[in-house]
Design a binder for these strands. Structure first.
Lengths: 218, 218
DNA sequence: ATAAAAAGTTAGGTATATCTAACTTGTAAA
DNA sequence: TTTACAAGTTAGATATACCTAACTTTTTAT
């Protein structure tokens, strides 16, 4: 049985090594800063996770998840996304509120609970952020997605997910009345800083490149 | 913010001092044995809870909840019973399975979650064990209930709750196909050991006094 | 009334997860 | 290619929650 904290380290490693970029390895400082702890703290935990064969790691080297470590991490991701779906669809939580509660719920230990929750929700494939939910076998649909930044001028696309889960970002998105399946038309792009003029719900607005980088579309 | 463990101590105190018997105080050994820890461990925690003004307690004396301690404990009890109701009614958990998962879920910190869950369940007044659920104001319906042991011979009553939440007891209850609202007719009582002959679903069976003491009826 | 038993506390130790400060290793730039 | 900085580790400390063993206080029974 993994502790709450061990689970968070595995989830962070999955996020850094696979979700963010497909580089498949992470550094100690990078991991520590992602989790909001000091590098010394992360080093201690890395020794423990290596001992339990959940990660592949040598002193002063890069970190990657082992087979079993990845399995555990995917299971936690599955629980996180199922709970987010529950909170949004059944309890009417808004899009930007689900994340922090799901951070707690994902650590509840009960295989039966996960399976029954999945069934109750109708075996959803995507969570309220549009991210794929790993199925009971731990299979995670690779989502070959483009960001809003990559869309050609004059084209209309449809938002399917966000890459950033910070409260600040999600609030901004809500404020713009932007949600899953919202249609976005790209009017123009400023070559100087990559900012974009777009149309959402008949309103023309300008967003920064940083913002557009975090909106996933189809 | 209270820790997981502090919450469990408060909940245990509420259970011992109010739920089990209305004696309103508990001893260190009694509390420790209820929680499955050593008395020395309980003493440490009692000092901490006293420091936080959650309990009324003097060295070598009896323990009781303070006003704010009781409030916190009732809030945890409310969460526990709402989650049990959710697990039983929405996820089809059987009666004897809900308790241990609810033990984990009751510690999730989110006022919004509790309120929305309550609403989603239709503001239930009783949990799957028939125990009253405290409302949002922390009001707990006093349930003036009798146990099966107190029922006169020849009388038919209706089961509304159980007093014992152990897995062994709940499994036995399930096995007998006894549930909330099951009608029970008392045929006879053995003066020697208090064992009772009863009729459930047209089957005549004999149960011990210990068993009958833990079946609450109306 | 006192001695034995029960109840409760203290002291000192362990494991987890965190920190700071000092040290070591790796890498990139002059 | 050497040196300086970034990255990473170690050592020692703290807080929580638990333990055992020894001690103290309270209660009970003779």
């Amino acid at each position: 049985m993994l502790s709450f904290t061990e689970e968070n380290y595995l989830k962070a490693l999955l996020h850094i090594t696979i979700e963010v970029e497909h580089k498949n390895e992470a550094g100690t400082n990078e991991l520590a800063s992602y989790l909001g702890v000091k590098p010394a703290t992360a080093t201690d935990m890395l020794k423990k996770l290596k001992e339990k064969k959940l990660i592949v790691y040598e002193k002063y080297g890069k970190i990657s998840l082992s087979g079993s470590g990845r399995e555990k991490a995917v299971e936690i991701l599955r629980k996180h996304r199922l709970w987010e779906t529950f909170l949004h669809e059944k309890l009417d939580f808004s899009w930007d509120e689900v994340h922090e509660v799901a951070e707690q719920l994902e650590h509840i230990q009960s295989q039966k609970l996960v399976d029954k929750l999945d069934k109750f929700l109708g075996f959803p494939e995507y969570d309220p952020h549009g991210d794929a939910i790993p199925n009971a076998k731990g299979e995670l649909k690779p989502s070959f997605r483009k960001t809003l930044s990559e869309v050609k001028e004059g084209t209309t696309c449809r938002m399917v997910a966000v890459k950033d889960n910070t409260v600040a970002f999600l609030k901004y998105v809500s404020q713009l009345e932007l949600g899953i399946n919202t249609h976005i038309k790209v009017i123009g792009r400023q070559p100087y800083d990559g900012s974009m003029e777009i149309v959402i719900n008949s309103n023309t607005i300008v967003v920064s490149q940083k913002f557009a980088d975090n909106i996933l579309i189809i």
